[in-house]
Simulated assay, not measured.
Amino acid sequence: MSSASLSGRTVLITGATSGIGWETARILAERGALVLVHGRTDKGARAAADRLIATAGISESQLCAYAADFTHFDEVEAMARQVVGTHPHLDVLVNNAGMAAPERHTVTADGNEIAFQVNFLAHYLLAYYLLAHYLLTHLLEPALTSDPGGRVVNVSSSLHRTGSIQWSDPNRVRRYSRLAAYAQSQLALTVFAADPRVTAVSLHPGICETELLSLYGHHGASPAEGAAHVVRLCDPAVEIVNGAYYDRDERVDPAPPATEERTVQRLNKLATALTSHEA
Rank of each mutant, 00 (worst) to 15 (best):
S3D: 08
S5G: 02
L6F: 02
R9H: 11
R9S: 09
R9Q: 14
R9K: 13
T10I: 11
A16F: 04
T17C: 09
G19D: 06
T24Q: 09
L28T: 00
G32I: 09
V35S: 13
G39E: 10
T41G: 09
A47P: 13
R51H: 09
A56C: 13
A56F: 10
G57P: 09
S59E: 12
E60V: 13
S61A: 15
Q62S: 15
C64G: 15
Y66E: 12
A67K: 11
A68Q: 03
D69F: 06
T71N: 04
T71K: 05
F73V: 07
E77F: 09
A80H: 00
Q82E: 08
G85W: 05
H87F: 08
L90N: 07
L93Q: 05
N95S: 07
N96R: 02
A100K: 09
P102I: 04
R104D: 15
T108P: 08
A115I: 01
L121P: 04
A122V: 00
A122E: 00
Y124H: 04
L125A: 07
A132V: 03
H138Q: 14
P142V: 08
A143E: 10
L144W: 03
T145L: 11
G149K: 02
V153G: 03
S157Q: 11
S158H: 12
L159T: 11
S164F: 14
S164H: 15
Q166V: 04
D169M: 05
V173F: 11
Y176L: 09
S177E: 07
R178I: 04
L179D: 04
Y182G: 06
Q186M: 08
T190A: 01
V191Y: 01
A193L: 03
P196N: 01
V201L: 02
S202F: 01
H204K: 06
C208I: 10
C208L: 10
E211V: 03
L212E: 14
Y216H: 15
Y216A: 13
G217K: 12
H218R: 14
H219R: 15
H219G: 12
P223G: 06
A224S: 14
A224H: 11
E225P: 11
G226P: 14
A227T: 14
V230C: 00
C234A: 12
A237D: 07
A237Q: 10
A237W: 02
R248M: 12
D249R: 13
V252M: 06
T259C: 08
E260V: 05
E261R: 14
V264K: 01
R266S: 08
N268L: 14
K269M: 11
A273V: 10
L274H: 07
T275D: 00
A279R: 07
